[in-house]
């Protein structure tokens, strides 16, 4: 593998020195190569995910509408489903009960301000949720509380439409579907900013 060519044959001491150098190099090389490998090797554990199993779980919906399924619903259709599926916890008109208030008290209920001692309590779809797609995503994955994940796409579109209407965001006859829902501009849109805690010497 490693040869020293040319010149006179080295004496025994020089040979030993070379051997030592070679040994150190090989050992060091092996060590570094091993560490490098762990950073670079792909072990190949696991198996390729099938399109079907991804589709079964890939239910998230982004603000740009990516992930919204086919289907549609209107506020009127949603109102009936709401009574059956949601009112027990959230109140007949989304005013809250056992669980969160979903609907603003009035169309001009403000975005919660840090200067208002009760700000944290005023978080409804109409004054705090920045994206309409989040309403669809959350209902579809988590609601109703005692039977999550059981609503059809049409039912979720309908409930989303009903809640947006109760919050004065869309008119009574607006149909929500994969094209219209991402276009809804929420009252709280633009009211959020990414973590800006940069100067750690400051209280924030």
């Amino acid at each position: 593998m490693y040869q020293v060519k040319g010149g006179t044959m080295p004496d025994r001491a020089v040979t030993m020195t070379w051997l030592l150098v070679i040994c150190v190099c090989v050992m060091a090389g092996a060590t570094f190569a091993g560490e490098d490998d762990e950073e670079a090797v792909v072990y190949g554990f696991g198996r390729p995910a099938t399109a079907e199993e991804i589709a079964a779980w890939d239910i998230d919906v982004r603000p740009d509408g990516k992930g919204l399924p086919a289907g549609s619903g209107t506020p009127a259709e949603g109102a009936a489903i709401y009574v059956a599926q949601c009112a027990a916890c959230h109140g007949a008109q989304g005013e809250g009960g056992l669980n969160d208030r979903l609907v603003v008290h009035s169309a001009d209920e403000p975005f919660p301000l840090a200067s208002d001692v009760n700000a944290g309590q005023h978080r409804t779809i109409g004054n705090y949720w920045p994206y309409a797609t989040t309403v669809f995503d959350y209902i579809r994955r988590s609601m109703p509380f005692t039977a999550p994940g059981t609503l059809t796409a049409n039912e979720v579109y309908s409930l989303t439409a009903h809640l947006l209407h109760l919050n004065h965001v869309i008119p009574e006859d607006a149909e929500m579907n994969a094209q219209t829902l991402p276009k809804v501009v929420m009252p709280a849109h633009g009211k959020f900013r990414l973590d800006d805690r940069q100067d750690f010497k400051e209280v924030h």
Partner: peptide, 9 residues
């Protein structure tokens, strides 16, 4: 909610 009428996300 933080100052400036916005929420930190």
């Amino acid at each position: 909610p933080v100052k400036g009428g916005v929420s930190r996300q």
